[in-house]
Amino acid sequence: MNIFRLVADLMHLASIFILLLKIQKTRSCAGISFKTQLLYAIVFVTRYLDLFTTWISLYNTIMKIFFIASSIYILYLMKYKFRATYDPILDTFRIEFLLGGSVILALIFNYDFIPMEILWSFSIFLESVAILPQLFMLSRTGEAETITTHYIFALGGYRALYLCNWLWRYIFDGHVEVYAWIAGVIQTALYSDFFYIYYTKVLHGKKFELP
């Protein structure tokens, strides 16, 4: 564990709490993409299957259970409790392509052609593009509640810090994880426009609006 990874994990954790806070405080899931949330639930469930096979640490186990449980809880909130506040007209990104593309990539790029490894690769590739429906929704509405932008920032920042973590581990442990690296770079790149607007507007006290 190094500082980048710890802060990254805490940001990831924070992003989920911010999202829950946004939904509970405003009693609305307006501005949140159900499709992105669905993809994250799929990512967590397919990646953390090793909960049943491998013990790493209490920290690791608790975080994994939390990510799976919270992602499913958010789906429940959006689908049932606050269903009336969700606008499917704005959430029209075709996730079939993201899912299909991730399946194909996982079948080609994996460490072993067994279900667990293919699903792990699948989750890595899917995570890298899972934010697209949310960013697409943002581009359609052209603006966002500030708390929603904090959520997206924390979620994007987590993988950017993982890049620092991987660089650290490469330098000090010689550890290289090539698929996660590539996916992580793509994932962070997809956020770059968002980061720029977040930095120039939200952090200067202005509302998040697309130029």
Binding site: N60, H175, V178
Partner: peptide, 10 residues
């Protein structure tokens, strides 16, 4: 070795 440590991350 490539990939050997990856399972300890989230």
């Amino acid at each position: 070795e490539i990939g050997i440590h990856r399972k300890d991350e989230l």
